[in-house]
Amino acid sequence: MAGTHGSSETKVSERASHFLKTLIEHHIRDGQPVGSRTLSKETGLDLSPATVRNVMSDLEEMGLVSSPHTSAGRVPTLLGYRLFVDSLLTIKPLDEIDVNALRCEFEPLDDATALVDTASRLLSGVTRLAGVVMLPRHERDVFRQIELLPLSGKKVLAILVTGEGEVHNRIIHTERAFTPAQLVEASNFLTEVFTGQDMVEVRRRLLEDLQATHERMDELLHQAMEMAQRVVESAEHKDQLLVSGQTNLMHFDELASMDRLKALFEAFSEKREILYLLDRCIKADGVQIFFGGESGYEVLDDCSLVTTPYRVDGEVLGVLGVIGPTRMDYQRVIPVVDVTARLLAAALRQHN
């Protein structure tokens, strides 16, 4: 079974588990609340309506299902989905014909970016969701040098040079004025620490260090790291993440309001937050699933993200996955994500 983000500790009886599994599978199919009569019919158990209602009440008390105000039926909660994926889902591997059809899509390509683009397209095409793939680390830009120069008042010009020789400038308003000597000292420190690292790793380390050592950090160093973080964020290339099939999400009623779609499409266009999220999966072993608020990213509260890292010779090069509504077909999506990661890794190994 695929590894997942978080875990479900709720103890549920065998009969209640059977009902929950049936309810979720029905809800995934049509997106509607599921009533007791439908459940009784689909579970194939010869139970009285009162017994079915009691089981449903138990599931509701455990926080695994909820009742929308407008309906007598129930829908799964995020906790219900978590239990379903962790304990009740049987994953069937893709059959060999499907795997070979996917493999053929990669075979004529010998360029890393084209391979990643193909993986993204295949993920969205096969699942009918949005496919996301991080570029391999060795294809990404690296941090070469940073210079912090004083401007008038409490303003600093941050100049970042990346591995390809690109120069990124950003004017930053600071809480206090710094002398040229202080800024030279800070620039030298940051350049020494981060030179040669890819930009995603630099941003991740800056964020971690700022959160972890704020209390103990020298004020100059803390402000210098904040300045570096801002210029690194503005310089990060949007092509570090390839996204395909965003428009597939328009076909799901729960995501189809204009406000929600606008926020989602902005997130796909901006990419930075989704990149942060995929970064968190770099060290995962196998498939990880984030339901709704587990992502920590508000725009994905009504979505799920299914991801897995892809590796070449034991080294994790990136993460790929799909984003879709919480009621996506996990039984189908999880093996597609897993196989695509393996095929991309194999194609990149050949390319190298």
Rank of each mutant, 00 (worst) to 15 (best):
G153S: 14
V161A: 01
I146G: 01
K155Q: 13
V142M: 03
T127H: 05
R128K: 15
F178T: 08
A177I: 08
G131W: 06
T127E: 06
F178R: 08
D111Y: 09
D111Q: 11
V126S: 03
I171G: 00
A112E: 12
V126I: 15
A119V: 03
V133F: 01
I159D: 04
P136T: 05
P136D: 06
L183I: 07
V167F: 02
P136W: 05
T174G: 00
F178D: 04
V184M: 07
K154N: 14
S152T: 08
T174D: 01
R144S: 14
T179Y: 02
E139K: 08
A177C: 11
L157E: 12
L115D: 08
R137F: 09
R121V: 07
A181E: 15
I146L: 15
V156A: 08
Q145T: 05
S120M: 03
A114V: 06
T162Q: 11
G131S: 10
E166F: 04
V116K: 05
A177V: 10
T174W: 04
N169T: 07
T127I: 05
H173E: 15
A119W: 03
R140S: 06
R170H: 09
L109V: 11
P150C: 09
H168E: 08
H138W: 13
I146F: 04
G131D: 13
S120L: 02
L122C: 07
V142S: 14
A130D: 08
I159Y: 01
I172Q: 05
D110T: 08
E139T: 09
L122G: 07
L157S: 02
V132N: 02
E164C: 06
I172S: 03
S124V: 09
T113G: 03
H168I: 01
S152F: 10
R121L: 11
I146C: 01
F143K: 07
T127Q: 03
T162H: 01
I172V: 15
F178K: 10
L115N: 10
L148E: 08
A130R: 11
A114P: 05
V184T: 14
R144F: 09
G125F: 04
L115H: 06
A114H: 07
P150V: 05
T113D: 10
T179D: 09
